[in-house]
Design a protein around this nucleic acid. Structure first.
Lengths: 138, 138
DNA sequence: AGTGTAGTTGCGAATCAATTGCATTTAACA
DNA sequence: TGTTAAATGCAATTGATTCGCAACTACACT
């Protein structure tokens, strides 16, 4: 009884064993994972997969809107996370790289609250994505 | 009359020609640059430098607190910027990768304003850095 | 000014995440 | 069940960043 996936499978994507493995690892994880972590976890489960396949699966999920790709700590780590996890922002410990979901979003009155955790803030970063005047008209 | 550098040279760092080149390129630029862009700019000025030297110079400046390293677009680009530039946050065009400094900061009432530029926001990212409970006590 | 030396650079090679090419396999649907 | 576009195994490549080491140089001290 493994397939407890509660996500509608994105149409256009074939439902394969490797993709289900990748998705299930993300589902079980409480925080975002790197491609390599996902790969290792799948291997540890006794299944065989290639790292390149993990990357391709993740790309497909990102494109399908099921997974979010984030980078953290200015390039040290690239992480993937299920979009449905609810939270979009994280507090990152510069000591141990632990990733703690924030309970609120800076878009609405910014006062970082953290999930049962004290956190000594030393810095923050905000990025806004979108289209500039020129690119908007293309 | 090239050395118009208005920055106090960080003590502990030798003042060399390559480092002055790197710093002057950053000074002239109105937006953050990648290591490769800095490298190309220096070559274009007719001076010879190695990319690895640019990286080392940037590392030294970052360590000295003179330069800021940021990543943008979820790891697609790593950029360097003079800390004194004043602004800390950017709007990044996902079309052309143009980087536009924001006039305000999300820490105080978040409503992104941009410098003479319309910008169609499609997403945003916030990261908070610091120490978690465990790391704080070390 | 001359010199010792720790810090820097030139240069190439190495590393490491991520991507790609291609032949083979497989899920999905007529 | 057969066809086929999509996905995977696997190897090789790319591209950014780092590293090793010998040669060089800024700068502190006579």
């Amino acid at each position: 009884m493994k397939d407890a996936s509660k996500f509608k499978w994105p149409k256009g994507l074939k439902r394969t064993k490797t993709r289900e493995s990748v998705l299930s690892v993300l589902e079980v994880s409480k925080s975002p994972l790197s491609a390599r972590e996902i790969y290792s976890e799948i291997e540890r489960m006794g299944e065989s997969i290639w790292l390149s396949t993990v990357y391709r699966a993740l790309d497909a999920f990102v494109e399908a809107g099921l997974v979010t790709k984030t980078s953290v700590l200015d390039n040290e780590i690239t992480l993937y996370d299920l979009k449905q996890s609810g939270h979009k922002h994280y507090a990152v410990c510069v000591g141990c790289h632990k990733i703690i979901p924030m309970l609120n979003c800076p878009m609405d009155d910014f006062k970082p609250k953290l999930l049962k955790e004290e956190f000594q803030i030393t810095g923050h970063k905000v990025e806004v994505y979108g289209y500039c005047t020129e690119c908007k008209e293309l």
